[in-house]
């Protein structure tokens, strides 16, 4: 199995690059060969502090930890401890301390690809929150996950918390889906603003797949200009944008 990835990311308009709170793994374009490949995107919640750090931890965790049958909240205990240790390194003003006590929150979407035993390979996805995956074969969208339509997206999703007491519904809120892939298939892993745009477009006549494919394969600068145009037209919510393109071959 050979996998290539390409990553596009942009902070919310008006924000600095260092204020970007999404995360992706791999964090840069890669070409990989092997029997298994993992990748992920995460989206730190605006209304929590140290959320970008938590999102980066979650994508790293998904990619480096062995598959584990324990409930997700148990698997994340070490990551939560690490998050607390990191933010306690320097004294915080009263408001940052109060915010840190609430914990950081992030959506996570992870994808695992396995090499084919026969003709088709297997993909398995895990999601908490409103990051979204699309599985494409040529120009056809075979599946979107976990969202299947634009109504899925609100501003109050259930997210993974760095606060151990805030994950009590995590098992019920974790969704999984599996399918099979063929050589040449593509996967788009997106954070919510772009996913919302895609699913709204799929329900209309905007041919969003061709548009997004053209932009995803173009330059970073062209992608940024395109996103700015969509935001300006009110077609895309002003939020951090992340698109991880994964192409898989035999």
């Amino acid at each position: 199995m050979h996998v290539t990835t390409r990553l596009h990311w942009l902070p919310k308009a008006g924000n600095q690059r260092e204020e970007y709170e999404d995360a992706a793994w791999p964090a840069r374009a890669v070409r990989a060969a092997g029997s298994e490949f993992r990748c992920a995107v995460a989206d730190g919640a605006t209304e929590s502090a140290f959320a970008g750090q938590w999102a980066r931890q979650l994508v790293r965790w998904f990619n480096h930890n062995p598959v584990d049958a324990r409930p997700l909240h148990e698997q994340l205990a070490a990551e939560q401890q690490h998050w607390r240790t990191e933010i306690q390194r320097t004294p915080l003003p009263w408001y940052a301390e109060a915010k840190a006590l609430q914990g950081a929150y992030a959506a996570l979407l992870g994808l695992r690809l396995r090499a084919p035993a026969a003709e088709e390979g297997v993909w398995e996805a895990l999601a908490v929150g409103d990051c979204c995956l699309a599985h494409l074969r040529r120009d056809a969208v075979l599946a979107t996950f976990p969202a299947t339509d634009a109504a899925f997206f609100g501003s109050r999703p259930y997210l993974i918390s760095s606060h151990p007491a805030r994950n009590d519904e995590l098992a019920a809120q974790t969704q999984t889906l599996a399918g099979t892939w063929q050589p040449g298939d593509r996967f788009w892993l997106m954070t919510d603003a772009l996913a919302h745009w895609l699913l709204a477009g799929l329900a209309g006549d905007d041919a969003p797949v061709a548009q997004l494919h053209a932009q995803a394969t173009g330059s970073r600068r062209a992608f940024a200009r395109w996103i700015a145009g969509l935001r300006h037209a009110g077609a895309l919510r002003n939020d951090d944008v992340t698109l991880l393109v994964v192409t898989v071959d035999a």
Partner: peptide
């Protein structure tokens, strides 16, 4: 007040 994503489990 909506200033961005507020998780439903943030209390």
């Amino acid at each position: 007040l909506d200033i961005g994503t507020r998780p439903s489990n943030l209390r």
